[in-house]
């Protein structure tokens, strides 16, 4: 591991997490390992927002679910506030759920269509006895107000709301138990730009008001940049680069991070033609990953040594690491894109 710029122990910590979804080919076929997440270590301090970026299939959502204990890791541990989630029995685990919550991507699937919004927010309040039974109503009103909705909406069903409003309701539900840690899995990807900004702002406000630790999962580098202090870039189940937002955005060390930044369209397009540095090919199948560095098949600076072994993390600065034997090279030639 490497030095973290923090004194207190982390609130949540993933230790060498891995998740295998073995696939069997045919009735008598061999079992094939398909690692969605591999050897991921990550720590979040109280009040810190960490962004996880990567393309579909990179394992970022699986990581988020494991960090909440919604999915069991095949290898490694998740430690929350000093306690290993795997060691906790059903009841204790459920009590701990109060402190960790989730906001989902699809605003249409994350709310039960058959129950009123108020009832769904009340669930957490009742299960964990957050407020006395008599005060549940007023607490729901307060939560709705906090996410910018009038208290009168509590009696309505989810289908009466727009995508952005539903996402606010989902946020209200998540903060109802006064959690310390929230995993937000692509919470704004399904929303229009103008609405996306509303929800991002809401999350920014809540983060500081409630002193939340947040794992913000997204494929959109720009959104992550706005919201997060630290950024984790994933590729084919592994963390390829981790560092502060400034470090990762201004001088990306890993060639994949650089390619991702270059590929993201910008309102102020580069003078060079689009895709001057477009990455060739597509994500390899996790069932059949390349030997050595998973990115080498598409990497513009790959060489023979890359195929030999999974590269070790190289320390690029304080709290900044990259899994590339040539980490940092090539910064100068693409400085203009940041």
């Amino acid at each position: 591991m490497f030095d973290m710029p923090q004194e207190a122990p982390p609130l949540v910590e993933a230790r060498s997490l891995g998740r295998n979804f073995p696939a069997r080919q045919g009735l008598l076929g061999r079992r094939r390992d398909v690692w969605a997440v591999r050897d991921v270590s990550l720590a979040l301090a109280r009040g810190e927002t960490v962004g996880v970026v990567g393309e579909s299939g990179c394992g970022k959502s699986t990581l988020g679910r494991m960090m909440l204990g919604l999915d069991q890791p095949t290898t490694g541990h998740v430690v929350f506030d000093g306690r290993d989630l795997a060691d906790l029995a059903g009841g204790e685990r459920r009590r701990l759920a109060r402190r960790m919550q989730m906001v989902f991507q699809d605003p249409f699937g994350s709310l039960d269509p058959r129950r009123s919004v108020g009832a769904q927010i009340a669930d957490g309040l009742r299960i964990h006895g957050i407020v006395p039974a008599g005060k549940v109503r007023s607490e729901i009103a307060r939560l709705l107000d906090q996410v910018g909705l009038p208290a009168t909406v509590a009696s309505r069903r989810p289908h009466e709301f727009s995508g952005g409003q539903r996402q606010r309701i989902a946020v209200a539900r998540a903060i109802s138990t006064r959690p310390d840690f929230i995993v937000a899995d692509e919470p704004v990807s399904a929303l229009d730009v103008s609405i996306q900004a509303q929800v991002v702002n809401l999350l920014i406000d809540l983060r500081s008001e409630l002193d939340l630790a947040m794992l913000f999962i997204s494929h959109d580098l720009h959104v992550v940049h706005h919201l997060c202090t630290r950024i984790v870039v994933m590729y084919l189940g592994r963390i390829v680069e981790e560092g502060s937002a400034a470090q990762v955005f201004d001088s990306p060390a890993h060639p994949y991070t650089r390619a991702l930044l270059a590929a993201t369209p910008s309102l102020h397009p580069r003078k060079t033609e689009v895709g001057g540095g477009v990455l060739p090919g597509e994500l390899p199948s996790p069932a059949n990953p390349p030997s050595g560095c998973p990115f080498r098949t598409r990497c513009p600076v790959a060489e023979k040594a890359c195929a030999a072994a999974m590269p070790e993390y190289r320390q690029m600065g304080t709290g900044w690491r990259a899994a590339c034997i040539k980490a940092g090279t090539g910064n100068t030639e693409r400085r203009d894109m940041a």
């Binding site: 679910r65 919604l70 989730m102 699809d106 699937g109 709310l111 669930d123 989902a170 138990t177």
Partner: peptide, 14 residues
């Protein structure tokens, strides 16, 4: 598999 059920699990519901 829908998110609202996952949300219930995340909530610690029995």
């Amino acid at each position: 598999a829908l998110d609202f059920v996952t949300a219930q699990r995340a909530m610690g519901t029995h």
